[in-house]
Design a protein around this nucleic acid. Structure first.
Length: 233
DNA sequence: TGCCTAACCTATTCACAAA
DNA sequence: TTTGTGAATAGGTTAGGCA
């Protein structure tokens, strides 16, 4: 899902609408509150010449007048949409978050709103939807973080506990285990009582392996390193 | 290849309703 | 009067068509 590019934005519960250019020419007109709905055959002819005029006159006029837009000489204060209009728009949005020109015109006629209003509503609705999505994502990630955090804390407590057990027993009981190297030389390995089982198993069951492994990577409990346990963050 | 247009985006402004 | 919400605007980006 990408939000930085409208063209690639793909919500996870709907597919993007197929591009429809059949009424794309209406865009400029519909954007700026003129209405030729009842004269479809005229639209194509007029649009090319009208659109630039509309951009530089009506839009500017609306912008300059700020809080009031003027449609057909009638002042229209900014009004909230009615409940019925909102419900219809919401239904349409649930079907498809993107608004193709045909649907825009259809909704415009059905709801008695300017096509530009429909487009703006969808734009704002997408923005609100995105905010909700981000909030939801944040909650989910926070929940996961909390769970992992707890787990980490528990593991750290366990490590501390085991370390103290090791230290205690290491000071009480020093074990010395002897074995004969392949070379025939007597060698000793110091193990704590806690480690003794695995230590014994390692020595008595894997003497041949021992020489190979110890040459490259001796176990952490081996020799002088036996008292240095790996540190944990 | 550069220009134009449609459609989208985010950020912001502004009007309105409710507390 | 303040504040939250939503309609509308401003300005920017991208993709596709065309000369």
């Amino acid at each position: 899902m990408e939000w930085n590019n409208g063209k690639t934005f793909t919500p996870n519960f709907v597919s993007p609408p197929p591009h429809s250019s059949s009424s794309a020419l209406l865009y400029n007109c519909s954007n700026y509150n003129c209405n030729f709905d009842h004269f479809p055959e005229v639209i194509d002819i007029l649009n090319l010449s009208v659109q630039s005029v509309m951009e530089t006159t009506t839009a500017k006029k609306v912008a300059v007048e700020g809080e009031q837009s003027v449609v057909g000489g009638v002042d229209q204060k900014k009004k909230r949409l009615s409940q019925d209009q909102l419900e219809a728009l919401e239904r349409s949005f649930q079907e498809e978050v993107k608004l193709d020109p045909d649907r825009k015109m259809k909704l415009s006629k059905e709801l008695g709103l300017q096509p530009r209003q429909i487009a703006v509503w969808f734009q704002n609705r997408r923005a609100r939807w995105k905010t909700k999505q981000l909030e939801h994502l944040y909650d989910t990630l926070k929940q996961q973080f909390d769970t992992i955090s707890k787990e980490k804390h528990n593991l750290q407590q366990e490590v501390i506990k085991l370390r103290s057990m090791l230290r205690e027993q290491a000071t009480r009981n020093q074990w010395s285990v002897g074995y004969t190297d392949v070379s025939g030389e007597e060698t000793t390995v110091e193990c704590t009582s806690v480690e003794i089982l695995s230590c014994n198993n390692y020595i008595y069951n894997n003497v041949e392996d021992f020489n190979q492994i110890s040459a490259s990577a001796p176990p952490f409990w081996w020799g002088a390193e036996a008292t240095h346990l790996p540190s944990y963050p």
